[in-house]
């Protein structure tokens, strides 16, 4: 497969997952933070922007409506849902001949139906729509793509982004009081609440909820699950019969990240959740870089310069 195409598929996966994750994250926190009468609106908005990774500077006082606009529909803001979906569509457009017509039409229609404004009252509906559209995109891929390299790169992108987004989501738990209700909301936003209840049979505690989202081996939105999936994808890309260790950098890094979580206890991680989550995000970006250098070698457009004697 062409490196350029693989790169686009990887990023379609990441952007689709990012749009979904951002929608879930916003949905939770617009409720959690902003409906709290004692919270300082501006500070809350800024911490959320920071967690989501926006670098932009907003000199004036931020309101929840502005925060919603910035992170949902502002195409100029790289962390917004709109920007992610647009980027996914642009990547798909560049590999139009590889992605299925159905996926293309799904991403294209999503972009063209993207609203320009969302009001606080309609926010929940909007996030629901984003979740549906991204689920549709993923569903199309899952149900109609051959399990070839195209699928593997797409899935790899999704898995890594999911690690990143879940890490961000967990990091936000520190933005508010680490009490029961907030964890319920966090679990709900991941669609994990019912699965959690079935597993733990009890009221969510911070420890149990974090453990579930970080370490559960069979819940697909947990970090460990997503890392395992990334590991499988990377192994599929480079079947090896080597007897000694792991030669692929990305694979080694994913494995380290996973075992570092898996072989520690939840309270230990939870004691320092924010920095642990930052470490996880850093890990993901290093893996992404290793994948780029291995499979998408410097493919920047060369600028040819003429020379004549």
């Amino acid at each position: 497969m062409l490196s350029r195409i693989a790169e686009s598929l990887f990023w379609i996966g990441r952007y689709v997952e990012r749009a979904d994750g951002t929608a879930r994250l916003l949905d939770v926190h617009l409720q959690l933070l902003l409906e709290d009468p004692w919270v300082d609106e501006d500070t809350a908005c800024r911490s959320l922007l920071e967690v989501i990774g926006s670098d932009a500077h907003y000199p004036h006082q931020l309101t929840r409506q502005e925060l919603l606009t910035i992170l949902s529909v502002d195409r100029g803001e790289p962390s917004s849902i709109s920007a992610s979906l647009n980027a996914a569509r642009e990547n798909a457009r560049r590999v139009r001949e590889i992605v299925s017509t159905e996926l293309w039409e799904c991403l294209n229609t999503t972009r063209s139906r993207m609203p320009r404004k969302v009001s606080i009252e309609r926010a929940h509906d909007f996030f629901g729509w984003v979740r549906e559209r991204t689920a549709l995109a993923v569903g199309i891929v899952e149900s109609s793509t051959s399990r070839d390299e195209a699928w593997t790169f797409f899935t790899l992108g999704r898995a890594l982004e999911r690690v990143d987004m879940t890490a961000r989501l967990l990091a936000t738990s520190e933005l508010t009081e680490a009490s029961g209700p907030s964890w319920t909301t966090i679990l709900r936003s991941c669609g994990a609440y019912e699965a959690y209840l079935r597993t733990y049979r009890g009221v969510p505690s911070a420890t149990n909820a974090a453990e579930f989202l970080l370490l559960d081996k069979i819940f697909p939105r947990s970090v460990t699950f997503a890392l395992s999936r990334a590991e499988t994808c990377l192994s599929d890309l480079q079947p090896t019969t080597a007897r000694v260790g792991v030669t692929d950098n990305a694979l080694r890094q994913v494995g380290q990240l996973r075992t570092n979580l898996e072989y520690r206890s939840a309270p230990e991680i939870l004691a320092n959740l924010t920095s642990e989550m930052i470490a996880l995000q850093t890990g993901v970006s290093e893996i992404s870089e290793s994948i780029r250098s291995r499979y998408f070698p410097v493919n920047v457009m060369p600028t040819w310069v003429g020379e004549v004697s």
């Binding site: 060369p302 600028t303 040819w304 310069v305 003429g306 020379e307 004549v308 004697s309």
Partner: peptide
């Protein structure tokens, strides 16, 4: 028919010698 003519991956400057 220039003696030498070509392209190179930029963006740096080149200087000819003969």
């Amino acid at each position: 028919l220039p003696p030498l003519r070509g392209v190179y991956a930029g963006p740096h400057q080149s200087e000819l010698f003969v």
